[in-house]
Design a binder for these strands. Structure first.
Length: 515
RNA sequence: GGCCUCGUCGCCAAGUGGUAAGGCAACGGUUUGCAAAACCGUUAUUCCCCGGUUCGAAUCCGGGCGAGGCCUCCA
């Protein structure tokens, strides 16, 4: 099956219109940088980063742009409140945003254009729209006239007439129609402003995306993405003004990701249940957080479960994240097993990064997994289905490991070992398409490679195993010395456990890990 | 009031016409000195309810109930 993508514009899945090898342009609406990123801000970037990863895997040349809105009302208000400048606030919050992206392995974004760096371009677009009769200046503002755009409302399926009926907003004095929206706003004293043909002012919300998408990616982009909440008014308006300006289709495909929810409620500042990325990362790894987002098909809402941080005694993390963290440990353990079996670092394991039609597998089951994973991804980037395949692979690989006695060098089956390595390599290949398997394990972070840490751990393990060996020599089960010795070995294991270190007594020897 | 989603095991979730993936949790077993990890087994004859279409429906249609989103600057 070839790649199919759901297009909001046509409300159906369509065959992807590009052939592998061709360039693909992708534009996704980014954040307004006025406060630290919360986990909801990461959903879109993770999803579209994964879209790029899969397209790249298939051989497309993807250019991915995410804009930074660094001037608007929220920024101005926040800067005033906190006694700082819009510029300083925007720079600080942009740095926070980049840091969050990095922690979640969102590495595919090629350009982060800032609104304030494209003001001249926006003025050009607005001028063009006025010249063509789509926009009109009004007392220092400039508005887009929705009645001039014959297919206004096509993205959301809105009838422009109806928009006025249920509208919560009064027609402002300067607008001709209630649906008209600002392309340019005249500024009040003290606000950031730029010179324009209509006086001192600043751009409207939607115009920056039109201008930056067109200037960086061309008049028609392949994929335009964003959260479902942006569909209206932002994307509808962006679409209207862009196509009015260029007289060409703005985006071939519109993709909208579902939003985060908490059980039956929503995450909102007004409720006080907003979870910042930085706070979430104190309790779960970035990789587990990314996995959590990808566990669900992107168009569905992502459920964090019922959670109210204001209730005393409630967990510090929503149940959905807690559960994702535990699920994810299965991935980590498989790589730990790989390291025990091969004596190699899993981080150094090289897996293919491009699809290879000639690829063959010694174990036919891996070819099946590969196919099933690809079928899910081809079906509108169904990462949730793909994750399911990954879990089935873990189970299969563990069985191969068990049956082949791979952790016992004297009895290990060479054929099984080769199959295991082949499978883990595919596992890594598929996981990397989802942008997973990038973090250094907690054990390594603590310093498993560190001479002193490792030396101390080996010493503790050796001493404990000496006690275990002594205890095992005593055959009489009720012997008090045997009991005492085992009490000591268990105490060591328990106390290390309290420090976050788990000891595992395996046939081939005792290993330790953090977590 | 208008537009639009969604309702699959205790929780999360894939499946959108061919007879219910997977994860978490739980329980039993193998293994282990005991654990941990892993493995085996059990846990939805049924997909909110009621009708209809069909040889066949979780999937399509109609009606109901329930939850949610958007309706002019929320990712």
């Amino acid at each position: 099956m070839a790649l199919q993508v759901y297009n909001t514009l046509t409300r159906k899945k369509e065959p992807f219109h590009r052939k592998p090898g061709e360039p693909v342009t992708m534009y996704v609406c980014g954040p307004t940088v006025y406060k630290p990123s919360h986990i909801g801000h990461m959903v879109g970037p993770v999803i579209f980063d994964t879209v790029k990863r899969y397209l790249t895997y298939l051989g497309y040349q993807v250019t991915f742009v995410v804009n930074i809105t660094d001037v608007d009302d929220k920024l101005i208000n926040k800067a005033n409140e906190t006694k700082t400048t819009v510029k300083e606030l925007a720079e600080r919050m942009t740095a926070d945003y980049h840091d969050c992206l990095k922690k979640l392995n969102v590495t595919g974004i090629d350009h982060f254009p800032k609104a304030t760096e494209h003001i001249d371009g926006m003025i050009g677009v607005i001028n063009g729209l006025i010249d063509k009769g789509y926009a009109y200046p009004a007392e220092g503002d400039v508005y887009f006239n929705v009645t001039q755009d014959k297919d206004y409302g096509k993205l959301c399926g809105f009838d422009p007439e109806q928009l006025e009926v249920g509208s919560r907003i009064e027609v402002s004095g300067r607008k001709k129609n209630s649906g008209d929206f600002a392309l340019w706003k005249c500024s009040k004293p003290g606000e950031p402003s730029w010179k324009s043909p209509w006086g001192e002012g600043r751009p409207g919300w939607h115009i920056e995306c039109t201008c930056m998408a067109i200037s960086l990616l061309g008049k028609t982009i392949d994929i335009h993405g964003g959260g479902l909440d942006l569909k209206f008014p932002h994307h509808e308006n962006e679409l209207a003004q862009s196509e009015s300006f260029t007289e060409q289709p703005f985006a071939k495909i519109w993709m909208h990701n579902g939003l985060l929810k908490m059980g039956s409620g929503k995450m909102a500042g007004s409720i006080g249940n907003v979870l910042n990325v930085a706070d979430a990362l104190k309790h779960v790894g970035g990789e587990a957080l990314r996995f959590f987002v990808l566990n669900t098909q992107y168009r569905s809402p992502i459920d964090l479960g019922e959670w109210d941080p204001r209730e005393p005694g409630n967990p510090v993390i929503p149940p959905g994240l807690e559960s994702a963290k535990k699920s994810y440990e299965g991935f980590i353990r498989l790589f730990e097993r790989y390291e025990r079996i091969t004596g190699l670092k899993s981080a150094a394991l090289q897996a293919p990064t491009k699809v290879n039609p000639e690829r063959t597998f010694v174990e036919p089951v891996f070819a099946e997994y590969m196919t099933r994973f690809r079928e899910h991804m081809d079906d509108d980037f169904n990462t949730g289905g793909g994750v399911g395949v990954l879990f089935e692979m873990i189970s299969t690989l563990n069985k191969i490991g068990d049956a082949g006695k791979l952790e016992d060098p004297s009895r290990a089956d060479a054929k099984a070992k080769a199959a295991f390595i082949e499978g883990v390599t595919l596992f890594k290949e598929l996981g990397q398409i989802l942008g997973l398997f990038y973090e250094t394990s907690k054990t390594d972070q603590l310093g498993a490679d560190d001479k002193i840490v490792n030396g101390v751990m080996q010493l503790v393990i050796e001493l404990r195993n000496n006690l275990r060996a002594e205890a095992k020599k005593i055959t009489e089960k009720t012997d008090p010395t045997k009991k005492m010795l085992f009490n000591q070995t268990d105490l060591i294991r328990q106390r290390l456990g309290e420090l976050g270190i788990t000891l595992e007594d395996r046939p081939a020897g005792t290993t330790w890990r953090v977590g």
